[in-house]
Write a protein that binds this DNA or RNA. Structure first.
Lengths: 117, 117
DNA sequence: CGTCGCTAGGTAGCACGCCGATCTAGATAG
DNA sequence: CTATCTAGATCGGCGTGCTACCTAGCGACG
């Protein structure tokens, strides 16, 4: 269950942005991010996708990571947005609204029946 | 010029849908599709991206192709939507509106400041 | 005690798709 | 003759998602 409602190529494109958005709610860790995204109706993000992505974000300095011992269960690596990450989320977020409207408008315009020769 | 206004990972995701939408206006050919997309504000789609994509659509039966001699210039391969292609455009188009709203809403919701421990 | 299952993170191999470069080729302009 | 635009196509490299698989802590169950 929790079927993937959207084509994976769409999800792929926005996955990074969605992850930043989740982290923006406050420091959290990979497994919880995956659960949050699944809960929010984006598909189930697999570890093999998520952890390398978080690693790239860390490498690019958009998130910072901190290890905490788990209280009941294994340790967790908590991620938080850096200043640059917050800026990235903000900018890309604004950009997304434009893109979404742009694409929706393009799809919606009535076909100007091109003359078939 | 004609800068790429959006992250390429977003464009990549919707490229197929956008191409179908262009073809929906009536039979057209690859080079013209690339020009139309650039004109519509999506970036410049490279031949190495577009032609394989059109090939995959043809293979999947969503478009059909027909060769026509060029009037002034090289020959052109005209593509038209098949019934299944039209259905795909329609369904994916509807799906896109949902996805775009979904993602926009997710980005817009105020952060429910997670308690930092 | 041994095992199962959940939580949590990580890695390796494979496959797919974008991208840049390169090629062919017709038409036209200089 | 050469350059440029149009038009299509292919190929190698690269990035990245995805499927498996692995480690490891902890609790529950028989």
């Amino acid at each position: 269950m929790t079927e993937n409602p959207y084509p994976s190529e769409w999800l792929r494109g926005v996955l990074g942005l969605a992850v930043l958005r989740v982290i923006a709610d406050g420091p959290t860790y990979g497994y919880a991010i995956a659960l949050a995204l699944a809960d929010q109706g984006f598909g189930e993000i697999k570890g093999g996708t998520l952890y390398p992505l978080l690693g790239r974000f860390e490498e690019s300095g958009d998130v910072s990571a901190e290890w905490r011992e788990g209280d009941g269960g294994p340790g967790r690596k908590y991620y938080r947005l850096t200043e640059s990450g917050r800026r990235l989320l903000h900018d890309r977020g604004r950009m997304w609204h434009g893109f979404a409207r742009h694409m929706s408008g393009f799809l919606t315009t009535m076909p100007t029946e091109r003359i078939e020769r």
